[in-house]
């Protein structure tokens, strides 16, 4: 199980204005059993944590200078070798993503009529200080909210909890600058 991680550098794609998502997902599909993925990007690819978390990958991220990031995605099976009793869980089940502070505000939007969860979450994010984190519980993936968070330069990650019914969203307020597309 000690395979060399597969290395994928998407920085050239990002610098050319391209969309590396497909390349990353193809690389993930081609990983051997237990093999990790070492990803190099020009920003911390926070949305990927949720996506790959759902596929059972944990992640460890570090800034490697020049604004670039290295993230190692490790499949849960490999992690489970050392902790065999713990089931694979989405990344969002962990207390908070690496480097993010604990949520300073919690919202439970599960019983609200649509589009009230969208409005309430955006309003609550507006009240945060830059860098602060909000945790929101929703009853479905907030497909219209996520692009709004991107447009406003906030970072987020989300995924369904183990019950498959509650979507947990973490939003870290940006500095007010528009996110790089």
């Amino acid at each position: 199980m000690t395979q060399v991680p597969h290395e994928l550098d998407v920085r050239p794609i990002l610098r050319d204005g391209g969309e590396p998502f497909t390349v990353i997902m193809n690389a993930v599909m081609s990983l051997g059993p237990g093999q990790a993925l070492r990803l190099l990007a020009t920003f911390e690819p926070v949305p990927l944590y949720g996506v790959l978390g759902k596929k059972g990958f944990g992640h460890a991220a570090r800034e490697i200078g020049g604004g670039d990031w290295e993230v190692v995605f490790t499949p849960a099976a490999a992690v489970a070798d050392s902790r065999p009793t713990e089931p694979a869980r989405p990344a969002v089940d962990r207390p908070s993503p690496s480097g993010w502070p604990e949520p300073s505000r919690h919202l439970d939007n599960r019983d609200l009529d649509p589009p009230e969860p969208l409005v309430r979450t955006l309003a609550a994010v507006e009240e945060l200080q830059p860098g602060e984190v909000l945790a929101a519980l929703l009853c479905r993936e907030p497909v219209f909210l996520l692009p709004k968070l991107n447009e406003r330069g906030h970072e987020w990650q989300g995924g369904f909890e183990a019950d498959g019914k509650t979507y947990k969203l973490l939003v870290r307020k940006g500095t007010g600058k528009k996110a790089a597309a």
């Binding site: 969309e19 949305p47 996506v51 907030p142 497909v143 219209f144 909210l145 996520l146 692009p147 991107n150």
Partner: peptide, 8 residues
């Protein structure tokens, strides 16, 4: 892109 925007 993750999430959706309304179709124009």
């Amino acid at each position: 892109m993750i999430g959706v925007s309304p179709s124009r």
